[in-house]
Design a protein around this nucleic acid. Structure first.
Lengths: 183, 183, 183, 183
DNA sequence: TATGAATGAGTCTTCATTCAT
DNA sequence: AATGAATGAAGACTCATTCAT
């Protein structure tokens, strides 16, 4: 695969991302992607064998970005950075793959998401424990609180597609997390 | 519509429910429902014009049940009843329409769900305010806390389809809500 | 078949007539007729085995009426009566079965229409010959002129469904026929 | 669309023409056309979205041919050419789209035919006026006579599908028109 | 006679996928 | 690499027709 090929693949992913964000996973067809990219049937199939393959590459990209979050000094700084990132994501619902991810996961691709979820949970547990150690956070059960933080976030993320949010809703999230953690 | 007709319709809904719970909304076809019910194509269409119609009748049933929750004496009793109902629902994921509902809502049927959500939120706000008045609950912001309770629940409900929960996860929910509210 | 039965049949024909006039023969379904008459599927089938059967009975009625035209004294009087009847029919296009008849005839029922046409032609030839004898009409070829009169009429009748006529068009018909025949 | 594509489209039109001529518009299905052309369902739909689309392209071809009739020197020559073309068409009923056109027009596509009819009428009126000027034709009302010529032709054309014509019938048409026009 | 539930065949339409070019 | 024609399977939907009641 030469340089041109990987450029085309990247372009396909970019276009497909928009479609998945808009319509979820199940409703996007190879035909749709042909039309968005301007490629012919055969041309598209040369790069990707189906929507699953495209979507799973998009996800890998997504989550490798999610992993890139770096560590700062204080637990508080890290927390505030994370909250800010989440708030932004919730409000930019037009770019959210939440429906697509959920559909995809429900179609027999649970494993990938279990792994993602476990990773995310570990990160939160880590952070909470660290904050407790540095006396920045309350003494709480890190396992329980990370569950709350994660599923609350998932709930928000999902329904932001459906329910028109004012930014109060996103603010509440940050506030609730702070109340759970800060002294 | 005679007795036989409405029996058949009820049977169709029962079978369709299982399919929607299993595969979500988009993936269920009229053909699937034919096969599950043992009806012919024409026979099914005599009763329902499409999956949308069946699903929306199932939802109406569902939510009219959800509305039937009555009021008890103390805020605490009501809360515990609600938590128990939720816990049960999360663990019985095979009966959950969550994916189907989410897909259906995302397909241009937002209004119905906004209304449902508003109703549920009002119910929680009411309960929280009532608990504060009776000195059973802490002084909190009912709006914010009800958001947390609702979206956390939605997140759990959704991902319970995908992530294998131990009952710790459901217990955490109840515990977190209690911590947010009780003195 | 009791009195009630033949009443129901007559009612079915009346309703079906409207449908055939509106949509032609091919497009009318037994279901349509059920709905128009308010009868159930089984109820309708008890009386008629299909749209063909209904339509052919309607036609028999139609043409037995057409045959009922009586003879008057002078050729001129008879001609004027015929022209008037035709003019009326052309303008009342909403009651015209022309499309339905044409479709029906083209579906393997030619014989019936050939007979009808031959009868009509004979009638005109007769009239023209009679008029020539009584010196009311010009000496023309009755065979040729009756063709003109009949097919011109058919053309008008058909396209009156499609092309919006002013009554000039119908008047022209009468005028042309008069020019062909009168001295 | 490459050369192969437009060849296939032409082939589809050719085959569809035969079917429309044989069965009218309403009775021809995409499946029929698949079978005639030897194309698969998807293959056919790649070129045409439905019978309407195919038929309307066939009509455009038809009538663009009809428009191609050129002007000659004398009114008489032109008239005789026209009559000959018409006579030929009437006798070649197996190639006549008359039923199909009539059905199609009656299904809400009146406009197209009104325009066609108006054009044809204008052409006849022109010719008649020209013939009167050149003293080749009698002084008649061009409007009225063109109506006669056109609707007589339509009537003939239609019923030639149903009634077995001897060529006398077609000859009569020409003769009648001549009698109406020539001195 | 009449009802309306049910059947099954038929048509429409869309897609994933393949393949010759 | 890319095109776009073609396939065939799948699903939606409609109807004529039958049958138990």
């Amino acid at each position: 695969m030469g340089a041109k090929g990987s450029q085309t693949k990247a372009m396909i992913r970019t276009e497909a991302y928009k479609l998945f964000a808009e319509k979820g996973f199940k409703e996007v067809t190879m035909k749709d992607i042909c039309e968005s990219t301007g490629l012919s049937r055969g041309g598209l199939y040369r790069h990707y064998a189906g929507t699953q393959e495209i979507f799973s590459e998009i996800l890998s990209e997504e989550y490798s970005i999610a992993d890139r979050i770096e560590r700062h000094e204080s637990a508080k700084t890290i927390l505030e950075d994370m909250l800010q990132a989440i708030e932004k994501e919730i409000m930019e619902k037009e770019f959210s793959l939440s429906l697509a991810i959920y559909e995809y996961a429900s179609m027999g691709n649970e494993d990938f998401f279990i792994r993602i979820h476990e990773k995310a949970k570990k990160r939160w547990i880590h952070l909470i424990q660290y904050g407790i150690e540095t006396k920045e956070f309350q003494e709480t059960d890190p396992d329980r609180v990370s569950d709350l933080i994660l599923y609350y976030y998932q709930g928000l993320r999902m329904w932001s597609r459906v329910i028109p949010f004012d930014n109060r809703t996103a603010k509440y999230y940050a506030e609730s997390v702070r109340q759970m953690l800060y002294l």
